[in-house]
Amino acid sequence: MLTSAINLILAGTNLSRLIEGLGVTIEISFLSIFFGTILGGFLGLLWSNVTGVERGFFRTYLEIFRIVPTIPLLFLFYYTFPRDLNFNLPATVVSVLVFSLWFGAEFSDIVRAAVQSVAKGQKESAYAIGLTTWQSYRYVLLPQSLVNILPAYINLSTRIIKTTSILLLISVTEVITVGQQIIEANSSNRAVPLVVYGLIALFYFSINGTLTWLSKKIERKVVANDR
């Protein structure tokens, strides 16, 4: 049964369709990470340098995206907003929008924490030799926070990639949706779901596992550098 199921998946266009679906998953993840990085980097730098009311604004943005699970966010942007505000966006665009906002919120916090964790003396030294705020970010604070940001950044990216799995709820033809279609077309073989979902798990595992491995490697290097 299992062997025939494996053969079934390898036969015909099944595997290439799955990989195509994986392409959609990767594309949405990549675009979300790209836009989220710009958004979060910008907000995080601003955030690291403000106090009072402005800080409250950043905190609120972050907490909303932390508290509300991703599924209602997705539905809000997919069903509610388009109808109430009278616009129409394809599901893929909505996905990228929601994930970018989410990534941006989380990333801004990472950037803020990293910049603020650079020792106070560094900021004062930069000031004492006359650097402007922008110059002290450019030459002193950012280069030092970058190595601290990278592991958390990669970790956040793997989270985005995993979360794209819920896109099957809003009819984006990503890898799991394709998997379901293949399972439906081959419903006579009861071992097909095991093989299909096992394979998809392997896809995710390869991508995220590589990223995690990379971030661990960077982290070790950072620790070694600090000594």
């Binding site: 049964m1 299992l2 199921a5 793997t158 995993k162 979360t163 794209t164 799995s165 819920i166 099957l168 799991i176 399972i183 009861r190 071992a191 097909v192 779901p193 095991l194 093989v195 299909v196 979902y197 096992g198 998809i200 798990a201 995710y204 595992f205 991508i207 995220n208 596992g209 995690t212």
Partner: peptide, 18 residues
């Protein structure tokens, strides 16, 4: 850590009966 909960659930719920 590197696979989505959704796939873990599908694997257990739809896959293991196979």
């Amino acid at each position: 850590r590197n696979t989505p909960l959704l796939i873990q659930l599908f694997f257990i719920y739809y896959g293991l009966p196979g």
